[in-house]
Amino acid sequence: MSIDREIEMFLAFAWMLGHIIVLIVGVLLGVAYLTYAERKVLGAMQRRQGPMTVGPWGLLQPIADGVKLFSKETIIPSQANKIVFLLAPVILFALALVAWAVIPVDKDWVLANINVGILYLFAISSLGVYGIIMAGWASNSRYAFLGGLRSASQMVSYEVSMGLIIVCVILCTGSLNLQEIVLAPRPIWMQIWLFPMFIVFLISILAECNRAPFDLPEGESEITGGFMVEYSAMTFALFFLGEYANMILMSAMATTLFLGGWLPPFGMWFLDFVPGIVWFGLKTCAILFFFLWARATLPRFRYDQLMRLGWKIFLPLTLLWVVGTAGLLLAFDALP
């Protein structure tokens, strides 16, 4: 092996490492300012100002919060399983970061352009349940345990319909690679046909992220915060960050699957000069705004309503849609 080759490999490695660090920093900043945006949007919807004190327009508020949580005491309950208790938030947050490896942010900007990207994404987002059930179980506290169970069965229920919706999309695009899913041609009839699935997907990601109106796992009036009740300081912060990172991830996933990722909207080719990452960011923000809007507007579901919606409405509907999509595509010979 020549020296040139070694230098080349070193450069490739450094490039990759830099890429990963840019992704991590980007997601962390995104999470920090999503919490800020949430407080501002909720404030505006309730005719308040939201955070205003720390920095201009309260812009430094997320950093102040982070420093505060970092410097607090970590309370480890005496009856808890200590290792699992500390491991749960670490796993949850790491998973929320790792999924970003396959998201195509721009034309040639994806860390690992693997050919089963959507499967990887689906698998990683399913693993998030482990962090929650570990937290609920290891805390050895009534509320935490109930919250963990609720959260796990809720996420698992809505994952089924999410999986079936993804199957609909890959029937239409003919590829598991996210970059190819973005670039796949989408005639107008296909977009209309997939639109109901987009709506169901939006509702499912609300439930998948344990967000209002499906935030029963945290329902503070019944189980006082759910699986996070025993957590404090940085371990709590990691749960918090993980939840918001998951929200951004799910929005990015919806953008990639349904809204054409980094492509300009509505096929407006004359907007091609704008970098793809701008479109990707704008579309993701639009879906994130929907998350916040739903939280400000809708009252919380009851648990039986939640389960009914997931199993008795979304599951049959999405299953029918898979059959319908496959049948239509076969009948009109339109399979990609």
């Binding site: 990759m16 490492l17 890429h19 990963i20 660090i21 992704l23 991590i24 949580l69 970092f70 410097s71 607090k72 005491e73 970590t74 500390l86 938030p89 670490v90 796993i91 947050f93 790491a94 998973l95 970061l97 790792v98 970003w100 490896a101 396959v102 860390l111 690992a112 693997i114 990887y120 300081a233 940085m234 371990t235 912060a237 990691l238």
Partner: peptide, 25 residues
Amino acid sequence: LPILIFIVLALGISGAAVIGSLLVA
């Protein structure tokens, strides 16, 4: 390979955050 490195880095960062907080506070 990038995914593997990413997993190691992500676990490292979140682990370091918890341990750092345990040490500092």
